[in-house]
Each structure stands twice: as structure tokens, then as C-alpha cells.
Design a binder for these strands. Sequence first.
DNA 1: CACTCATTCAAGTAATCACTTGAATACAAG
DNA 2: CTTGTATTCAAGTGATTACTTGAATGAGTG
Lengths: 225, 225
Amino acid sequence: MSDHAAKQRIYEQFARIGKALGAPGRLELIDLLAQGERPVDALAKEAQMSIANASQHLQVLLAARLVDTRRDAQRIYYRLAAPSVIELWLALRRTAESQLAELPGVAREYLGDPDTFEPIDRDELARRIEAGTVVVIDVRPAEEFEQGHLAGAVSVPVDEIKRWARDEAPKRKQIVAYCRGPYCVYAIEAVAELKKRGLRAVRAEDGVAEWRAAGLSIETGKSAP
Amino acid sequence: MSDHAAKQRIYEQFARIGKALGAPGRLELIDLLAQGERPVDALAKEAQMSIANASQHLQVLLAARLVDTRRDAQRIYYRLAAPSVIELWLALRRTAESQLAELPGVAREYLGDPDTFEPIDRDELARRIEAGTVVVIDVRPAEEFEQGHLAGAVSVPVDEIKRWARDEAPKRKQIVAYCRGPYCVYAIEAVAELKKRGLRAVRAEDGVAEWRAAGLSIETGKSAP
DNA sequence: CACTCATTCAAGTAATCACTTGAATACAAG
DNA sequence: CTTGTATTCAAGTGATTACTTGAATGAGTG
């Protein structure tokens, strides 16, 4: 009675998911996939790992059923297998933020002082969008924008931020830039560039994954003209 | 610019948490700790592992700051370090449930057919408690009951279920038994015993951790007389 | 058909990990 | 101070893992 081996087999199943979350490279891939589907080479390039290594990590995620694939000609697109995977990733990140004293220091090394660009939170941003007092720009690569962006946002990939600042940016209105989330540098770089040119810009820390988890509306497709 | 090594260090921090979730034994310990604090030997006994092994797993959880300790004389009590840890554990379990096709089969081996005791869900149980049409029993060990139980529940540890069924159980009213959660056998064993004696009993799948996460009220301390 | 491109597979290496056994610490009670 | 109890530490073993390199698949294209 109360078969120990059977109980262990249950926890082994849970551990399959846990193990998949146990490598930094894999978490980076999950974080990227939270922005939408991508082929292997794009993921490898973004995460700066060899293609073979990325492929292998993706196989591990596939075995744990955290990701799914779709074939289009030679390319294989990977995507997160379910919304619960994003929630799990966000829960893991929240726990790391609340428990690991070393994280803020390490994050600061990569992102700089968190308060430099007076980041604004979700509720405050939602209020300002509602009031129409801000222009929201999505500084991720265009493909990610197309797969889901904040309702009303304009796509301005970081490599185009200088051109946009010169030609199209509003001179008076406040600009809010966001990217993949709290650990992505793009919005920070964008705001730095905009401020250098005397524009009023701030950073929103959250990305599409966080917005969606908070129940806010996400649009897909290219920007309206 | 865009220092790859610094970015990697961030994901290494997240992976500390992930790695800690990568061993079945550790997940079982977390599941037990979700019921409240316990000393090492009690945890080892419940999880049926050697004390040295349990201690080592707990050191890993401690290094990942998922657990905390409190000393009382010779005994060291471990407990989950924050509510976010329970949420992370529940998120991991939900993902496993939605993604791993093998889990239901493995769970059935340990728990039997999930529908045998017509389990009732949270909302239904809350409604029946409100209406006063049920008696709720908590069949976990008494220490766990004292550290948190469903408001209004009576403590009837599984080893006392026979005596209780004979001497105290209501003959007509429906009895709802719960234990540690969906993967705990105690409530199943209790309901089987009660039904064998002709009493009206059903099982609630959720435990205290799930109730608390759902925002329901939890009481502490011994039963009122 | 050869040729290219994206992805996966296979083999090898160094590192990490879970578990065991046996000894060491740390506190309490006599 | 000795004895007992709870926990941790240390060393050793077999298994697993992350990454690399180089070859193999498999789906287009000229």
C-alpha cells in the first residue's frame, strides 16, 4: 500500500519540467520565444550560441513539451507550447526577483541603474494611453511586433531609432518605449538615444508577455499606416 | 556594448531557481513544505529518503533561497521562503498537467481512477460549506492541520479515520475529505474507508496551498472543541 | 540532377549531480 | 563531562549534462 515507486514516478514527471528550466541558455530561449515564434538560427543568433547548441536546447524543451514546432519549407519555427509556459516563466522570474539578493546587482551590470529612465509601471502607462498623452513605441525587431504588440503602439526597431528620432518622433509629446521585458536592453538604448536628442522619453519595464498575463489587450499584424 | 557575458549572468541567476526544481526529490520536499514547516527527519521520513540525502536536497533549496530555516533546540525547521515559491510550484504543476501526456497515467497508478470518489471542486465546496450541508475533514497529520487548514474543517488524521467513522462521523450529512492536494492519497484512503462503512463521503482535490492561492480563508491552530 | 540552406544527429570531453556511507558538529539532558 | 539526538559535512561512485566539432538529413532551387 502507498507505493513509493509510483509516487516517485509522479514527481519525476514534474521534474522533467524543472530540469528543462535548469540551464541558463534554455531560459534565454524561453524568454525569446515568449515574444513569438522563431526559427532556430534566429534564436541562436539572438542568444549568441552556436546553432547546434541552440538546436539541442530546443530538443530538450521539446521533450519537456514546453515548446512546439511548425515547419515552413526548410525552416522550423519554434514557439511556446501553451500559455501556462509563459506563466511558469514569469513565476520563476518573480521568485528569483524576490529571493535572490544577487540578481539586482547582476541586472544592474547589464542594464545600468534601474531608475535612470524613471520607468513607469503598467497601470500608469495604461492610464496615459487612455488619456492620449503619450506615444508608445515598440523597439523590438519588426517580426516580434507583428506577432503581438501593445494596442496602439508603433513599431520602431532599435536600429531605426535614430532615423525615427530625426524624422518622425513627436517633439513635445512624451514617448514611452518598451521591448521584451524588464531584462531587455533595447528600450533602455532607445530612451537614451531619444533623450540625447532632447526628446521626452521614458521606459516601460514590461513587455508583451507581462501585459498579456495582466489581461491587457494585445494586437497583431503590422502598424496601421 | 550589449555585453553578452553580463546578460548570461542574469539568466544564470534565473537558472539557479530552475536547477533547484530539477530533481524529483526536491519537488517532493517542496510539496511537503507547502503544508507548513517541518524538521529534516520528518521530511526525510515522509519522502522516504535517507536523512543525509534529504539534508543535502534541503541545502540545495537553501542555496537557491527557496526555503528558510528556523532553529528550535537541536531541531532545524525548514519552511518555504516566500509565497512566490508556492506559486512557482503550482505553476510548474499546472504546466506539467497541461503539457505532459504521461502524467495522468502515472498519477492513476498511484491514486487510482480520478473519478472514483466524484471529487468536487473549490467553488462547489465553498458553496456547500456556506450552506452548511457538509462536514469537512482534514485528514493530514495533526501538525499540518495546526499550521493551516480550511476554515471550519475538523482534523481527522488518516490513522484515526476508522475510530472517527465509528464514534463521531455524522450518519446522514455528507463528508468532504481533503489532504495535501491532488497528488496526495490520504483523502482517497479516507473516503474509501468511510464509504465502506456506508457513510456519504467525497474527496476534495485541492489542499491548503491551492485554497490559499485562490484567496480562500485559512485558519491556524487546533480545532475548536 | 547537383547545389544550397536550415536543422539535426553523433561522438567526445569536462563538469555537475544524486545518492550512499561514515564521520563530524551542535545542542540538550543527565 | 558523558550520552543521546538532530543535522550537516566529506569523500566516492555512476549517471547525466552542456558544449564543441564535424558529418548527415531533408527540403527547396537552378
